[in-house]
Design a binder for these strands. Structure first.
Lengths: 301, 301
DNA sequence: GTTGTTCTTCTCAAGGTGAGTAATTCTCAA
DNA sequence: TTGAGAATTACTCACCTTGAGAAGAACAAC
């Protein structure tokens, strides 16, 4: 049915009418909606997940913390470009360093009341960054800094309390202790301005899901890394300890996930054990088979 | 570090400043960006995947086909509401019928030149609908109709030619034949207006991925269905035949995917075989373990 | 040296998957 | 009426992946 999907016939007449239409078109005839990009930039520091936040310099929500973001420059940049620009401005990274950062679109948030000024549609982006220097506030953002995710969602919010299928190999600092907040403590009020709590929660869930079937966990690490460091990424993002032996076997058996550099770690601050072999990211874009999160029975409902 | 994530102190002063700011705020001070929603609505008709398209009544791209969509009503609706409204208008469905339709956000498209009129950011939505009546053009859309996806992407576009691990159980009409287009034939020019080809391609890939780990394939079917009908959904969306026996075992073994109604099909147009048992969608939101697409080695790269 | 920790490799049992076979029930056409 | 063909459903079997545990070797700290 209806096979005339493309109708390139009668091109001259149609082109003239299009021109007439565009000449008389007034972009300001509509009620305006502002378009912004917000970035959920995640990184790992000292075995804890951190998110880049800024302190808002002016109203609305002056003084509160928020995700970095800003208005899209109308007619001059794409959404991806706007997100990359905002991230670069806030972190002070140059294009080269930004090349090692994974940036993908997360989703859009467009409720009419999410910003008191006017109807603002925000396109959220998710970034995975390797350990970055302290975010020296680029220009407009008053104070950009890496905030521990647990400081915003004390319990790991949309996630349930992590279970421990076994206690062996528990690594300290992976979850819990450090902030002095007791487990069970929850953020009663919102921690970030606007609906950025929700955006961050969505970003975290996306990150947790994405490292299951893509090699993006390596984006949190440097050029070369050990299997243990890679495992620490998974344990930190998922908030659950993993079986070291099985993880090792799995990572090496998935084709294209990592490839050996032939070198070994020089162990700067190790707590014992043999020198680990170093690997770099392979050429796989998809993990096959995937590394699945343990114990997701509850999520099935 | 920086534990003062929420700063509710000095509330009076801050509130007064916020009010002053909002009173003097002019929403039209910025270069405008228009915000639209576009919907990739998929359904199954006669064992072929169809997408809802409209013929554009006016410029730009007058006369060409496009995805249904329209401007978001500033200050009056959320993105989700706008997408549901557009879908309802285009299909002529009431709220009740729309309740059976799955609608989720797909992604945003915001290149500065994707619309010749001005910078338009479009939030795309993806809908899974059961067999719907002919889309009687609601109001504004000239002619809304269900277009076979193969008419837009003759070869199944972003997908490679489907392989056949086995020939047994090939169902006619699942892919290939019907349009008279020979395999190998590709759409050279774009088939849909704007960048809607790309949006549709992204929607198809999302649909293919989503039915792997969610029970959303049932959203293409009626209240009750047979395992074979469910398998036909997977075969049509994935464009590859599946092993009937293994599929059967798998679907029944995943907890919460389907539940028996106790009844059997009355077989309106069957080609033989015993009456199949009927099932309805279960209460699972995630398939565990997932039904994975066969043969994705190439995608891994 | 001794102790404890980490890296790496094995083993084993349990469960999921792809492929094939078969009994049964139905439609359709000779 | 009968036989061919097809669909539903249930098995079987070999293979692979996974979770859990164990163990040897290498290294740091006391």
């Amino acid at each position: 049915m209806t096979d005339d999907v493309a109708a390139p016939g009668a091109a001259g007449e149609a082109a003239r009418r299009e021109r007439d239409f565009l000449d008389s078109y007034d972009p300001r005839a509509f009620d305006p909606i502002a378009v912004t990009v917000d970035v959920v930039a995640l990184t790992l520091r000292a075995d804890r997940l951190h998110v880049l936040t800024v302190e808002r310099g002016g109203p609305p929500f002056a003084g509160e913390r928020a995700l970095p973001g800003g208005f899209v420059r109308a007619g001059r940049e794409s959404l991806d470009e706007a997100a990359a620009r905002e991230l670069a401005e806030e972190t002070g990274l140059d294009a080269a360093a930004l090349g090692r950062v994974h940036l993908e679109q997360l989703g859009s948030y467009g409720g009419p009341d999410r910003d008191p000024r006017m109807h603002v549609v925000s396109i959220a982006y998710l970034a995975f960054a390797p350990g970055l220097p302290d975010a020296t506030a680029g220009s407009d953002a008053a104070g950009a800094s890496w905030t521990p995710v647990e400081a915003i969602f004390p319990q790991g919010q949309p996630r349930h309390a992590p279970r421990r299928p076994f206690e062996q190999g528990r690594r300290p600092g992976t979850y819990g202790g450090g902030t002095g907040r007791r487990p069970g403590h929850r953020a009663s009020a919102q921690a970030l301005a606007f609906d950025h709590d929700r955006i961050l929660a969505d970003g975290l869930e996306r990150a947790r899901a994405k490292i299951e079937y893509t090699p993006l966990a390596t984006a949190f690490l440097g050029e070369s890394f050990t299997i243990s460091q890679l495992r620490a990424v998974y344990e930190t993002v998922w908030g659950a300890p993993l079986h070291a032996g099985n993880f090792h076997r799995k990572v090496l058996s998935v084709p294209g996930f990592v490839e050996s550099t032939g070198e070994t770690d020089n162990r700067p601050g190790g707590r014992g054990g043999p020198r680990a072999r170093l690997y770099r990211a392979g050429d796989a874009r998809l993990l096959h088979p995937a590394l699945l999160r343990p114990d997701r029975e509850e999520d099935v409902r």
